[in-house]
Protein backbone atom coordinates (compact mmCIF):
# COMPACT_ATOMS: atom_id res chain seq x y z
CA UNK A 1 0.00 0.00 0.00
CA UNK A 2 2.95 2.25 0.72
CA UNK A 3 3.90 1.80 -2.92
CA UNK A 4 0.65 3.25 -4.22
CA UNK A 5 0.97 6.41 -2.17
CA UNK A 6 4.33 7.14 -3.66
CA UNK A 7 2.95 6.69 -7.14
CA UNK A 8 0.04 9.05 -6.79
CA UNK A 9 1.13 11.78 -4.42
CA UNK A 10 4.83 12.18 -4.79
CA UNK A 11 6.61 11.05 -7.90
CA UNK A 12 10.30 10.26 -7.91
CA UNK A 13 12.51 13.20 -8.87
CA UNK A 14 14.58 12.43 -11.92
CA UNK A 15 17.40 14.27 -13.61
CA UNK A 16 18.91 13.52 -17.00
CA UNK A 17 22.39 14.87 -17.61
CA UNK A 18 25.09 14.41 -20.16
CA UNK A 19 28.86 14.77 -19.96
CA UNK A 20 31.19 14.33 -22.96
CA UNK A 21 29.20 12.38 -25.46
CA UNK A 22 27.00 12.53 -28.53
CA UNK A 23 23.70 13.02 -26.63
CA UNK A 24 22.27 10.06 -28.54
CA UNK A 25 21.28 8.24 -25.37
CA UNK A 26 19.41 11.25 -24.03
CA UNK A 27 17.70 11.53 -27.42
CA UNK A 28 16.50 7.94 -27.05
CA UNK A 29 14.65 9.01 -23.92
CA UNK A 30 12.85 11.74 -25.85
CA UNK A 31 12.31 9.54 -28.83
CA UNK A 32 8.85 8.28 -29.78
CA UNK A 33 6.46 7.44 -26.95
CA UNK A 34 9.18 6.64 -24.45
CA UNK A 35 9.24 10.15 -23.00
CA UNK A 36 5.53 10.52 -22.33
CA UNK A 37 5.42 7.19 -20.56
CA UNK A 38 8.39 8.04 -18.35
CA UNK A 39 6.92 11.47 -17.66
CA UNK A 40 3.73 9.81 -16.47
CA UNK A 41 5.58 7.69 -13.94
CA UNK A 42 8.24 10.04 -12.64
CA UNK A 43 8.84 13.74 -12.28
CA UNK A 44 11.53 14.83 -14.74
CA UNK A 45 12.99 17.74 -12.76
CA UNK A 46 16.11 18.41 -14.75
CA UNK A 47 16.91 17.74 -18.40
CA UNK A 48 19.33 20.40 -19.69
CA UNK A 49 19.20 18.99 -23.22
CA UNK A 50 15.59 20.09 -23.68
CA UNK A 51 14.89 22.40 -20.76
CA UNK A 52 16.31 25.85 -20.13
CA UNK A 53 15.15 26.20 -16.55
CA UNK A 54 16.36 23.26 -14.51
CA UNK A 55 15.78 22.27 -10.91
CA UNK A 56 18.95 22.48 -8.84
CA UNK A 57 17.89 20.58 -5.69
CA UNK A 58 18.29 16.97 -4.63
CA UNK A 59 17.28 14.19 -7.00
CA UNK A 60 16.17 10.60 -6.44
CA UNK A 61 17.59 9.15 -9.62
CA UNK A 62 20.12 10.83 -11.86
CA UNK A 63 20.71 9.43 -15.35
CA UNK A 64 24.12 10.29 -16.77
CA UNK A 65 25.16 9.92 -20.37
CA UNK A 66 28.69 10.15 -21.74
CA UNK A 67 32.31 9.40 -20.96
CA UNK A 68 34.71 11.26 -18.72
CA UNK A 69 37.02 12.99 -21.22
CA UNK A 70 37.96 16.20 -19.35
CA UNK A 71 38.69 17.12 -15.77
CA UNK A 72 35.55 19.27 -15.81
CA UNK A 73 33.50 16.13 -16.34
CA UNK A 74 34.74 14.75 -13.04
CA UNK A 75 33.64 17.91 -11.24
CA UNK A 76 30.19 17.68 -12.84
CA UNK A 77 29.94 14.00 -11.88
CA UNK A 78 30.89 14.61 -8.27
CA UNK A 79 28.32 17.38 -8.00
CA UNK A 80 25.63 15.12 -9.44
CA UNK A 81 26.61 12.29 -7.12
CA UNK A 82 26.15 14.57 -4.11
CA UNK A 83 22.76 15.71 -5.34
CA UNK A 84 21.27 12.30 -6.09
CA UNK A 85 20.30 9.20 -4.17
CA UNK A 86 21.02 6.88 -7.07
CA UNK A 87 23.19 7.29 -10.15
CA UNK A 88 22.17 5.52 -13.35
CA UNK A 89 24.75 5.15 -16.09
CA UNK A 90 22.82 5.63 -19.32
CA UNK A 91 24.26 4.11 -22.45
CA UNK A 92 27.46 2.38 -23.48
CA UNK A 93 29.72 5.43 -22.94
CA UNK A 94 28.96 5.86 -19.26
CA UNK A 95 28.64 2.10 -18.72
CA UNK A 96 31.76 0.77 -20.43
CA UNK A 97 33.49 3.78 -21.97
CA UNK A 98 31.99 3.49 -25.43
CA UNK A 99 33.69 4.52 -28.64
CA UNK A 100 35.75 7.35 -27.03
CA UNK A 101 37.46 4.82 -24.74
CA UNK A 102 39.20 3.41 -27.82
CA UNK A 103 41.72 6.22 -27.30
CA UNK A 104 43.08 4.37 -24.26
CA UNK A 105 44.63 1.83 -26.57
CA UNK A 106 45.98 4.20 -29.22
CA UNK A 107 48.81 6.68 -29.44
CA UNK A 108 47.24 9.84 -28.01
CA UNK A 109 49.32 12.30 -30.06
CA UNK A 110 48.75 10.44 -33.29
CA UNK A 111 45.01 10.33 -32.74
CA UNK A 112 44.76 14.02 -31.92
CA UNK A 113 46.92 15.03 -34.84
CA UNK A 114 44.71 12.95 -37.09
CA UNK A 115 41.56 14.80 -35.96
CA UNK A 116 42.74 18.35 -35.27
CA UNK A 117 45.44 20.31 -37.09
CA UNK A 118 46.24 22.23 -33.90
CA UNK A 119 45.63 20.50 -30.61
CA UNK A 120 47.92 22.09 -28.07
CA UNK A 121 45.07 23.94 -26.40
CA UNK A 122 43.06 20.71 -25.86
CA UNK A 123 43.18 19.30 -22.35
CA UNK A 124 41.56 15.91 -22.77
CA UNK A 125 42.41 12.93 -20.62
CA UNK A 126 42.07 9.25 -21.38
CA UNK A 127 38.33 8.59 -21.62
CA UNK A 128 36.92 6.39 -18.84
CA UNK A 129 33.45 5.21 -17.86
CA UNK A 130 31.82 7.08 -14.99
CA UNK A 131 32.14 4.28 -12.46
CA UNK A 132 35.87 4.95 -12.36
CA UNK A 133 35.13 8.28 -10.68
CA UNK A 134 31.90 7.94 -8.76
CA UNK A 135 29.78 5.14 -7.34
CA UNK A 136 27.20 4.00 -9.88
CA UNK A 137 24.05 2.20 -8.70
CA UNK A 138 22.49 1.07 -11.94
CA UNK A 139 23.56 0.53 -15.52
CA UNK A 140 21.48 0.82 -18.66
CA UNK A 141 23.91 -0.41 -21.29
CA UNK A 142 23.90 -0.43 -25.10
CA UNK A 143 24.63 2.22 -27.73
CA UNK A 144 22.05 3.73 -27.69
CA UNK A 145 20.19 2.15 -24.74
CA UNK A 146 17.07 0.21 -25.62
CA UNK A 147 13.76 1.89 -25.08
CA UNK A 148 12.42 -1.35 -23.66
CA UNK A 149 15.08 -1.46 -20.98
CA UNK A 150 14.67 2.19 -20.01
CA UNK A 151 10.94 1.67 -19.55
CA UNK A 152 11.52 -1.52 -17.60
CA UNK A 153 13.92 0.31 -15.32
CA UNK A 154 11.59 3.23 -14.67
CA UNK A 155 8.79 0.80 -13.99
CA UNK A 156 10.94 -1.15 -11.56
CA UNK A 157 12.00 1.89 -9.55
CA UNK A 158 8.49 3.26 -9.34
CA UNK A 159 7.05 -0.02 -8.09
CA UNK A 160 9.85 -0.83 -5.63
CA UNK A 161 11.07 -3.79 -7.63
CA UNK A 162 14.73 -4.68 -8.02
CA UNK A 163 16.16 -4.15 -11.48
CA UNK A 164 18.66 -6.60 -12.89
CA UNK A 165 20.36 -6.85 -16.25
CA UNK A 166 20.27 -10.24 -17.93
CA UNK A 167 23.40 -12.32 -17.52
CA UNK A 168 22.80 -14.33 -20.69
CA UNK A 169 24.89 -13.74 -23.80
CA UNK A 170 23.60 -12.08 -26.99
CA UNK A 171 23.68 -15.53 -28.66
CA UNK A 172 20.74 -16.76 -26.63
CA UNK A 173 18.40 -14.09 -27.97
CA UNK A 174 19.94 -14.30 -31.44
CA UNK A 175 19.40 -18.05 -31.69
CA UNK A 176 15.90 -17.76 -30.34
CA UNK A 177 15.13 -15.36 -33.16
CA UNK A 178 16.29 -18.02 -35.60
CA UNK A 179 19.12 -15.99 -37.09
CA UNK A 180 21.83 -17.83 -38.99
CA UNK A 181 25.03 -17.74 -36.92
CA UNK A 182 27.42 -15.09 -38.22
CA UNK A 183 30.39 -16.81 -36.58
CA UNK A 184 29.61 -19.99 -38.47
CA UNK A 185 29.49 -17.87 -41.63
CA UNK A 186 33.03 -16.75 -40.95
CA UNK A 187 32.41 -13.30 -39.49
CA UNK A 188 33.95 -12.06 -36.27
CA UNK A 189 30.84 -11.59 -34.15
CA UNK A 190 31.25 -10.87 -30.43
CA UNK A 191 27.84 -12.32 -29.55
CA UNK A 192 29.04 -15.24 -27.38
CA UNK A 193 30.99 -13.01 -24.99
CA UNK A 194 28.64 -10.03 -24.87
CA UNK A 195 25.87 -9.44 -22.39
CA UNK A 196 22.44 -9.85 -23.96
CA UNK A 197 19.26 -7.86 -23.48
CA UNK A 198 19.31 -6.07 -26.82
CA UNK A 199 17.16 -8.70 -28.55
CA UNK A 200 20.15 -9.36 -30.80
CA UNK A 201 19.47 -6.18 -32.74
CA UNK A 202 22.66 -6.20 -34.82
CA UNK A 203 22.91 -9.89 -35.79
CA UNK A 204 19.21 -9.87 -36.69
CA UNK A 205 20.08 -7.19 -39.22
CA UNK A 206 23.05 -9.15 -40.52
CA UNK A 207 25.60 -7.00 -38.70
CA UNK A 208 28.11 -8.50 -36.29
CA UNK A 209 27.89 -7.81 -32.57
CA UNK A 210 30.49 -5.24 -31.47
CA UNK A 211 30.03 -5.91 -27.78
CA UNK A 212 28.52 -2.55 -26.88
CA UNK A 213 26.82 -4.00 -23.82
CA UNK A 214 30.11 -5.12 -22.32
CA UNK A 215 31.22 -8.64 -21.42
CA UNK A 216 28.69 -11.25 -20.35
CA UNK A 217 29.48 -12.34 -16.74
CA UNK A 218 29.71 -15.96 -17.79
CA UNK A 219 31.69 -15.41 -21.01
CA UNK A 220 34.29 -18.02 -21.94
CA UNK A 221 36.79 -15.66 -23.56
CA UNK A 222 39.48 -18.32 -23.55
CA UNK A 223 37.46 -20.70 -25.72
CA UNK A 224 36.35 -17.81 -27.89
CA UNK A 225 39.95 -16.85 -28.59
CA UNK A 226 40.86 -20.45 -29.42
CA UNK A 227 37.94 -20.59 -31.82
CA UNK A 228 39.02 -17.44 -33.61
CA UNK A 229 42.57 -18.68 -33.85
CA UNK A 230 41.22 -21.81 -35.51
CA UNK A 231 39.25 -19.67 -37.91
CA UNK A 232 42.40 -17.81 -38.87
CA UNK A 233 41.86 -14.51 -37.12
CA UNK A 234 44.75 -12.85 -35.36
CA UNK A 235 44.71 -11.72 -31.75
CA UNK A 236 45.00 -8.16 -33.05
CA UNK A 237 41.81 -8.41 -35.07
CA UNK A 238 39.85 -9.71 -32.09
CA UNK A 239 41.24 -7.08 -29.74
CA UNK A 240 40.39 -4.35 -32.24
CA UNK A 241 36.78 -5.57 -32.32
CA UNK A 242 36.56 -5.75 -28.55
CA UNK A 243 37.96 -2.23 -28.27
CA UNK A 244 35.21 -0.70 -30.39
CA UNK A 245 32.96 -0.12 -27.40
CA UNK A 246 33.99 -1.95 -24.28
CA UNK A 247 37.75 -2.42 -24.62
CA UNK A 248 38.40 -1.37 -21.05
CA UNK A 249 35.83 -3.77 -19.66
CA UNK A 250 36.88 -6.73 -21.77
CA UNK A 251 40.45 -6.14 -20.66
CA UNK A 252 39.42 -5.96 -17.03
CA UNK A 253 37.22 -9.00 -17.47
CA UNK A 254 40.10 -11.01 -18.84
CA UNK A 255 42.21 -9.95 -15.91
CA UNK A 256 39.31 -10.94 -13.67
CA UNK A 257 39.34 -7.59 -12.00
CA UNK A 258 35.82 -6.55 -12.75
CA UNK A 259 33.87 -6.83 -9.55
CA UNK A 260 30.86 -4.83 -10.68
CA UNK A 261 29.88 -7.34 -13.34
CA UNK A 262 27.67 -9.45 -11.13
CA UNK A 263 25.19 -6.59 -10.80
Amino acid sequence: MKQKKENTTEKLKIGLYGISGCAGCLLTVIYEDCFTEINELVDIKAFPLIKEDNYKGPLDYCFIEGTVCFDEDIITLKKLRKRSKYIVALGACSHVGGVPSMKNFLNKDKVMRFVYPKYNHLKSTNPTPINKHIKVDYYLPQCPPSKKEILEFVQAITSNRPFRLTEDPVCFECRKKGNPCLLNQGQLCLGPITRGGCDALCPTNDTICYGCRGPCPDANIHAFKELLKEKGYTQKELVAKMQTFAGLQFKEFEEEKSTWLEK
Partner: peptide, 12 residues
Protein backbone atom coordinates in the same frame (compact mmCIF):
# COMPACT_ATOMS: atom_id res chain seq x y z
CA UNK B 1 13.37 -13.09 -0.61
CA UNK B 2 12.46 -11.67 -4.01
CA UNK B 3 9.98 -9.67 -6.07
CA UNK B 4 7.03 -11.94 -5.42
CA UNK B 5 7.42 -12.18 -1.65
CA UNK B 6 7.93 -8.40 -1.48
CA UNK B 7 4.56 -7.93 -3.15
CA UNK B 8 2.99 -10.68 -1.05
CA UNK B 9 4.14 -8.92 2.12
CA UNK B 10 2.08 -5.87 1.23
CA UNK B 11 -1.20 -7.83 1.32
CA UNK B 12 -3.46 -7.51 4.36
Amino acid sequence: AGNVTTAFFQLK
